[in-house]
Amino acid sequence: MVGIVIVSHSRKVAEGVKELELQMAKNVPIESAGGTSDNELGTDLEKIILAIKQVYSEEGVVVLFDLGSACMNAQMAIESLTDEMQKNVKVLDVALVEGAITIAVDSSIGKGLHRIEEAVKKLCLHKMS
């Protein structure tokens, strides 16, 4: 299954989204990377890297985020991975809660990374600019 990482400036938000996803798709590997290392608001590059590695498989990982700098840190985390791992990790810019649930369910039914990305785009779950 495709793994999922939730990156949020808030530890509680990231954990809450993970909890909701697991209610919908119990067997999907999901990790949260919310807040800083001292649990303040912000994001932590090392938390994101660890979360990606914890859910990583050759089937891929989707990283979702809440705000701009979370996306930037997610991209930096991916750049720190091996070239082989980088090919299998995607950051998707979707509505966090709705996107996370859709992706978790799609992963649980065996959709691959590219099919998940296509499905999310078709559902118009992208954030409004």
Rank of each mutant, 00 (worst) to 15 (best):
I109H: 10
D38A: 07
V63L: 04
G99N: 03
A104G: 14
V120N: 01
D93K: 00
V91T: 06
K122H: 09
V28H: 10
G16C: 06
M72E: 12
A119M: 08
M1L: 11
D66F: 07
N27K: 14
Y56P: 15
M24P: 14
L41W: 10
I48G: 01
E118S: 11
E79Q: 09
L22T: 04
L113A: 07
L64C: 07
I49C: 08
D38G: 01
E21W: 02
I78K: 07
Q23F: 15
K18T: 06
K18A: 08
I101Q: 08
G34F: 00
A119N: 07
S8K: 06
T102N: 07
D106W: 12
I49Y: 11
T43Q: 12
G99P: 13
G3F: 01
A25F: 08
A95W: 04
I103M: 06
V13T: 02
A70F: 05
V89L: 06
V97K: 04
M85V: 13
E118N: 13
R11Y: 03
I78W: 05
I101E: 08
E118F: 14
A77V: 07
S32H: 05
G112N: 09
I78L: 03
S129E: 14
S80D: 15
A51F: 03
V94L: 10
I116M: 04
G35H: 03
V5K: 00
I109G: 12
V2H: 15
A77Q: 09
E58S: 13
L67P: 14
G34K: 00
E84A: 09
K12Y: 08
L125Q: 03
G99E: 03
E84D: 08
L41P: 09
V91R: 02
S69N: 15
K121A: 09
S37E: 07
A25W: 06
V105Q: 11
M85Q: 12
F65S: 11
I30W: 00
A51C: 04
S108R: 12
K121S: 12
Q75P: 15
V17F: 05
V5Q: 01
V28Y: 11
S8L: 02
F65Q: 05
I109T: 10
I103T: 00
E19H: 06
G35W: 02
A104Q: 12
S107M: 15
V13L: 05
Q75D: 11
K87I: 12
E117R: 12
L113S: 03
Y56V: 14
F65P: 02
D44F: 10
E58I: 06
R115Y: 13
H9V: 02
L81G: 04
